[in-house]
Simulated assay, not measured.
Amino acid sequence: MSKGQNSGGLMSSAGLVRYFDSEDHNAPKISPKTVVAFGVLFGLLIQVLNAAF
Rank of each mutant, 00 (worst) to 15 (best):
P28K: 12
G43S: 14
K33M: 06
R18Y: 01
A27H: 09
F38M: 12
Q47G: 11
A52L: 08
A51S: 01
M1P: 01
A14L: 10
V17R: 01
V35F: 12
S22C: 11
V40Y: 11
L16I: 10
M1V: 02
S13A: 10
G15C: 02
P32T: 05
E23G: 04
G8K: 04
S22G: 12
L10Q: 12
A14Y: 03
I46C: 02
Y19W: 01
K33T: 12
G15I: 04
A51G: 09
P28Q: 14
A14R: 13
S22D: 03
A52E: 02
L49F: 14
K3E: 07
E23M: 08
A27Q: 15
V35K: 12
S12Q: 02
N6Q: 06
S13W: 03
S12R: 00
A37E: 06
A27F: 10
I30W: 11
G8H: 05
F42Q: 08
T34V: 13
H25C: 03
L41Y: 03
N6E: 15
G15E: 01
K3H: 13
F38S: 09
P28M: 12
A51D: 10
F42C: 11
K3R: 15
K29W: 10
A52Q: 03
A27T: 12
K3P: 05
K3G: 05
Y19D: 04
Y19L: 08
G9L: 10
S12D: 11
N26I: 05
G4V: 07
V36N: 03
K29C: 00
P28W: 09
Y19N: 06
L49S: 00
N50C: 07
F42H: 08
K33F: 07
H25Y: 01
N50T: 07
V36F: 15
F20T: 09
T34R: 04
G15F: 03
F53D: 02
A37P: 01
G4D: 13
L41N: 04
Q47V: 14
L10D: 09
A51E: 07
I30H: 11
L45D: 05
S2Q: 04
F20M: 08
D21S: 15
T34P: 03
M11R: 09
R18E: 11
K29M: 14
L16Q: 12
